[in-house]
Design a protein around this nucleic acid. Structure first.
Length: 876
RNA sequence: GGGGCGUUGGCUCAGUUGGUUAGAGUGCAUCGUUGACAUCGAUGAGGUCAGAGGUUCGAGUCCUCUACGCCCCACCA
């Protein structure tokens, strides 16, 4: 590992060259594997949210990779056996749609080529395009263990899926039957409740007359006139005086003249529409419930393509929208229509595909969710599982407490085929290993159910199926339960809740103890990125331009847990600049380390104020970062590190260090080198989880025998020096004020000036070279008595610094400047005195807060007095 | 209908046991390059922390209400 001839650092960090090289360096040495930590190490495990195998990389992927890689790298450096399990999801509908599109372009279809050939083609497609997203994980620096990569259709995961299904079946928690479900006519499959997206849209409300026996009619309103064909009742409110006399009479379905009853139910809202409701149980969820209550027949009027079926009389064969139009026209001709009006309503559309979902009666498989949900609720309620940010626990409870049975069957071919078999008598057999004969009648003529399972059924098993379950593998024993589940809040129901339910149900353990939810990445104006809007930021292009580290750092510091963040390119640019800053610091440090670079941690004893200051600050930073990480405040921690590195280390300490480095004092030089190196090393460690590439590359240029940064030891705070920090604050304050004066008076930057000091002379004298370097004050003299007339005065606490500026001082301007400062100080004093004069404050505030306030007031008073003195002495 | 989030300088955002003069990036103004960095440095202007009330010695931070924006869940034809 020793690198005796470390090449000089290049002018800038070449991320394009370094990133793939470093990734290979880490991966080929096995540092992504938990085994690097040794057998005694405590595991830390994250199962990756598996991206769709043929999906395209978007910022959501970069977001989760950045966060999870941060956690993994941090825990790895803390000595844990960090395991990040990679993998991909077969994504049933999305992938099947992609392949079907390809087939269409070839002039064929899945129906034409058949199931077997279709699956063959889909696997080919997966082999061809499935690698892209996986390679992009490498591009982002994801330190996952590739030896443990999984795919939801792997044989071992398929075994887990069948085991889960059969277990639920044996427990009576899976059932099959005709139910009203969400049907996607375009995809020709059932979809679950969570896959339906509802949005307000402009539509029409149609008012018409429902003929009643005896020549009367009830006015009814509907948004879907074609469903009239499936009506099996008309409902009114039992106490509605307008219609009360019609309850129990017979109504006739328009155009079909099918007799149906007029019923009364309190569900009907008298205020809405006409106050009368048509009941179409086979095509509406509310009507379905009412029909069950009243034992009404259910008449399905549509086929799988949502065209009117044979129950639609003269409309048979028409598409649902064509039927709507024709039926309405026919009713109009019959004088049955009243009016139409514009109406805003909620339209359900499929998450994939986007066409309008049709509620239909269909034979599907369901899981009874209440027993599973009860356990999942308890796990979070008891605190075994913590959701970050906490407010999502409420959302989680609300969903689980109102959970409905899960429709798990999909009329697709790409996915896990339902392990249920039918004989010619219609009996169902579900057995491990695949049955050879019917469990009921013994028939050997079995056919498997054609449907596949919802993709989320297999992803629900992900944290344990990837580790070998149901086999009791060593990995399952060592790495399950996992630790953190990190993902976007948008899949809390789809995925997170189901993993918790299935994990608890099948393994009897929580699958993870912490759920960390991040927000969505939007464009810089807060709009959702979409291809149609053309505002999509392509992460690949961004990484090409600014480097992976820059994009990662931007996303990690760009928001807070659970909240969406707006991404502006200017922020990525800033992150790139920060990486450059770090590179330049390192370049400076490494080129000034001399022939025998220090190897020991610096000893603060006897060091100068700036030396002790930076050591105290960097250790304070370590403590701060630790506290923030403990609370999942990764963004704030990133800013703290950035601010230290740039604003304190680079802008102050590196500048100050030049005094020693450019001197001939070998002892002081060596001390300074040690502090520079230690501060840089610590900064690199803290920053590595955010910017893995640039930090590791710099690390390789540091001298001495050292472990690679990725597996180096996470720092702990070991030093704190309040005195040095206070003294340095005084020095910094004075320097900034000198610069300010120079700027205001237009003193040429190169011009050296002198100063006379009153108070704290020892501190100033000891740091005279700091003033010389940072504000070009070449000499500070002790002021013995009187005040120099031709000078500008600077006051900071008990120190007054006079800058003799012969011929440059405008006394009127100086007076104005001092008066302004005095007013400012006076205002602060007033506030402080008021606080300290308040008995409640003295009695109830924490003692250290009161003490701090007293110190502050004393300093302010000194400043005020000095300012007044100077104003009095100022020539008129 | 229920629940949640947001509202802080021109713009984008930090600010988590309530406690110094509310911070940063970007934009703006002025100045600055022979020795880490113009992907830079120095200095400065710019904010009644949406509004009202309350709790408290003390509120950007906690509570209530209001306004505006956004999101999730939910069966109004």
């Amino acid at each position: 590992m020793t690198m005796p001839n470390i090449p000089e650092m290049s002018k800038t960090f070449d991320f394009a060259e370094s990133e793939p090289r470093l990734y290979k360096y880490w991966e080929s040495n096995g540092w992504f594997k938990p085994e690097v930590a040794g057998v005694d190490a405590k595991p830390f495990v994250i199962a990756i949210p598996p991206p769709n195998v043929t999906g395209e990389l978007h910022l959501g992927h970069v977001m989760f990779v950045s966060l999870e890689d941060l956690m993994i790298r941090y825990e790895r450096m803390r000595g844990k056996a960090a395991l990040w399990i990679p993998g991909t999801d077969h994504a049933g509908i999305a992938t099947q749609l992609g392949v079907e599109k390809m087939l269409r372009n070839e002039g064929t279809s899945r129906e034409e080529i058949g199931r077997e050939e279709f699956l063959h083609r889909t696997w080919e497609w997966k082999e061809k395009y499935g690698g892209a997203i996986v390679n992009q994980l490498r591009r982002m620096g994801a330190s996952v263990d590739w030896d443990r990569e999984r795919f939801t259709l792997d044989e071992s995961l398929s075994v887990a899926v069948r085991e889960a299904f059969i277990t639920l079946w044996d427990q009576g928690l899976i059932y099959r039957g005709p139910r009203l479900i969400n049907w996607s006519p375009g995809l020709q499959t059932a979809v679950s409740d969570v896959e339906v997206e509802r949005a307000e849209e402009q539509a029409t409300l149609y008012y018409f007359k429902y003929p009643i026996e005896g020549g009367e009619y009830i006015p009814v309103a509907t948004t879907r006139p074609e469903t009239i064909l499936g009506d099996t009742a008309v409902a009114v409110h039992p106490e509605d005086e307008r219609y009360k006399h019609l309850i129990g009479k017979t109504a006739y379905v328009p155009m079909l003249n099918r007799p149906i009853p007029v019923i009364a139910d309190e569900y009907v809202d008298r205020e809405f529409g006409t106050g009368a409701l048509k009941i179409t149980p086979a095509h509406d969820f509310n009507d379905y419930e009412i029909a069950q209550k009243f034992n009404l027949p259910m008449i399905s009027i549509m086929d799988k393509k949502a065209a009117i079926n044979e129950n639609g009389g003269p409309y048979t064969g028409l598409d649902r929208f064509a039927a709507r139009k024709k039926l309405w026209a026919d009713m109009e001709a019959m004088g049955l229509t009243i009016k139409t009006e514009a109406h805003t309503l909620i339209i359900p559309r499929t998450q994939r595909g986007g066409e309008i979902v049709e509620p239909m009666i269909s034979e599907q498989w369901f899981v009874k969710m209440e027993p599973l949900a009860a356990k999942a609720i308890e796990a979070v309620r008891s605190g075994q599982i913590k959701i970050v940010p906490e407010r999502f626990e409420k959302v989680y409870f609300n969903w689980l407490e109102n959970i409905k049975d899960w429709c798990i069957s999909r009329q697709l071919w790409w996915g896990h085929r339902i392990p249920a078999f039918y004989c010619e008598n219609g009996h169902i057999t579900v057995e491990r290993g695949g049955p050879v004969k019917c469990a009921t009648c013994g028939s050997r003529h079995l056919t498997q159910d054609p449907d596949v399972l919802d993709t989320w059924f297999s992803s629900g098993l992900w944290p344990f199926s990837t580790l070998g379950w149901p086999q009791q593998t060593p990995d399952l024993a060592r790495y399950y339960p996992t630790d953190v589940l990190e993902t976007g809040y948008d899949i809390l129901f789809f995925w997170v809740a189901r993993m918790i339910m299935m994990g608890l149900w099948f393994t009897d353990e929580i699958p993870f103890h912490t759920v960390y939810l991040h927000g969505l990445v939007r464009d810089e104006n807060g709009n959702k990125m979409s291809k149609s809007k053309g505002n999509v930021i392509d992460p690949l292009i961004t990484m090409d331009k600014y480097g992976t580290d820059a994009l990662r750092f931007t996303l990690l510091t760009g928001g807070t847990p659970g909240n969406d963040q707006n991404l502006a390119e200017s922020r990525v640019e800033y992150s790139r600049n920060f990486g450059n800053k770090l590179w330049q610091i390192a370049k400076f440090v490494t080129s000034n380390l001399g022939d025998n670079p220090p190897t020991e941690k610096p000893d603060p004893k006897g060091l100068s104020t700036p030396d002790r200051w930076i050591l105290s600050r960097v250790n304070g930073l370590v403590a701060t970062v630790q506290r923030l990480f403990d609370n999942h405040q990764y963004g704030e921690a990133g800013w703290q590190i950035q601010s230290f590195v740039w604003d304190e280390f680079a802008d102050w300490y590196v500048e100050i260090s030049k005094n020693a480095l450019y001197s001939t004092d070998e002892h002081q030089k060596q001390i300074t080198r040690g502090i520079l190196l230690h501060t840089l090393e610590t900064s690199l460690k803290l920053l590595h989880p955010y910017m893995p590439f640039v930090t590791e590359e710099i690390w390789r240029h540091l001298p001495g025998e050292r472990k690679p940064l990725i597996i180096s030891q996470w720092p702990t705070a070991w030093y704190s020096d309040d005195k040095a920090e206070a003294d340095m604050n005084t020095i910094k304050d004075l320097i900034v004020k000198v610069r300010n004066i120079r700027s205001e008076y237009g003193v040429e930057p190169g011009k050296r000036i002198t100063a006379m000091a009153f108070g704290a002379f020892d501190l100033l004298e000891a740091n005279a070279n700091v003033f010389a370097r940072l504000c070009n004050v070449e000499k500070i003299a002790r002021l013995e008595g009187g005040t120099p007339e031709q000078s500008a005065a600077i006051v900071s606490g008990d120190v007054t610094l006079y800058l003799p500026l012969a011929g440059m001082v405008d006394f009127a301007a100086e007076r104005e400047r001092l008066n302004k400062e005095l007013a400012n100080v006076a205002a602060q004093i007033e506030k402080s005195e008021k606080m300290l004069g308040n008995e409640g404050f003295i009695a109830r505030a924490k003692p250290e807060v009161v003490a701090r306030e007293r110190t502050k007031l004393a300093e302010l008073t000194q400043t005020r007095d000095a300012l007044q003195e100077r104003l009095t002495a100022l020539p008129v």
